[in-house]
């Protein structure tokens, strides 16, 4: 009896999967592709979500899907693709304003601040929904060497809550605590190592002073003892350390200034991230 039951069970088990595969396992159907893409999007797997959505769009037009493709690329940092997809969304679409927001946000995030300002100036629309782009427009000045607009104009788009922070950034940009390259060079020329200490490299400055001073003492001592060859060798080393330190002080001041700029831009980016670049949050995963 048991062998017969086994045979019957095996017979049915080989029959049913065939049925399942045709009815439920059609992952090529457009609805299943979209479901899978939605799942990937909500699981933050944006690259694969975008590819699945693109596959879906080859069969059907859907502006929500286009927008989500743009969002996916934007969230993984592929801004050129994101810009391309946001640009595709038509003006009569319900997502046109959001797409424009995201288009400019992606342009900003890609670091193309000059084109951001150029396209923005060409496409200004008196529309409340994209007015927050004014804020990004002014923020772009923090990332370029261009002269900042007057403070009052700059603060105009921001509300009272934001104003303090923006004022602080404005102050840091207009008066950065840079170190003067010329001052570092002059200081190191007068007292070896002092230029490095001025730029914050205290250990390097002290070592440079010791190396130059020690070589100076050894050169003096050897000349005094009539060991002229050794005296000249140490004189050469003085020149080596002295000149190297003056050059290094100039480089150190430049690196210090680059660090100030780097930290400033990092802080601005952090703030922009906290504010989501003044664009709304979209909840497609409810």
């Amino acid at each position: 009896m048991i062998p017969t039951i086994c045979l019957v069970f095996l017979f049915f088990s080989q029959a049913f999967p065939q049925k399942d595969s045709s009815d439920y396992f059609d992952i090529n159907s457009t609805s299943n592709i979209k479901k899978f893409a939605d799942y990937l999007f909500c699981a933050d797997d944006y690259l694969r979500a975008a590819l699945e959505y693109e596959k879906y769009l080859s069969s059907y037009y859907n502006d929500t899907v286009e927008f989500k493709i743009g969002l996916s690329y934007s969230r993984i940092g592929n801004y050129s693709k994101a810009i391309e997809w946001f640009n595709k969304i038509k003006n009569n679409s319900g997502f046109s304003n959001d797409a424009r927001n995201e288009y400019f946000k992606s342009l900003f995030q890609s670091g193309d601040y000059y084109n951001f300002r150029k396209y923005y100036s060409e496409n200004i629309v008196n529309n409340d929904k994209i007015r927050n782009l004014d804020k990004l427009f002014y923020f772009s000045y923090f990332f370029t060497d261009d002269e900042l607009p007057p403070r009052n104009d700059f603060l105009n788009p921001f509300n009272l809550k934001e104003e303090n922070k923006i004022n602080e950034f404005y102050q840091r940009k207009t008066n950065p605590p840079y170190k003067s390259v010329a001052a570092a060079v002059i200081m190191s020329s007068l007292i070896p190592g002092s230029g490095k200490i001025y730029t914050g490299q205290i250990g390097d400055g002290i070592i440079a002073a010791i190396a130059t001073g020690l070589c100076g003492y050894l050169a003096y001592d050897n000349f005094k003892a009539k060991h002229n060859f050794r005296g000249w060798v140490f004189s050469g080393l003085i020149a080596f350390f002295y000149a190297g330190n003056i050059y290094g002080s100039a480089a150190s001041a430049q690196i210090y200034n680059a660090g100030i700029q780097f930290n400033f831009q990092n802080d601005v980016k952090l703030y922009l991230n906290q504010q989501n670049y003044f664009t709304p949050e979209y909840d497609f995963c409810k």
């Binding site: 490299q201 390097d204 000149a243 190297g244 330190n245 050059y247 290094g248 480089a251």
Partner: peptide, 22 residues
């Protein structure tokens, strides 16, 4: 010339034992 100056600066910095967090 510039390369030698850069090397002189680097050599001095290499002598510094306290460069851990720099």
């Amino acid at each position: 010339l510039q390369g030698t100056l850069m090397f002189a600066d680097r050599f001095t910095r290499d002598l510094n034992l306290f460069k851990l967090n720099h």
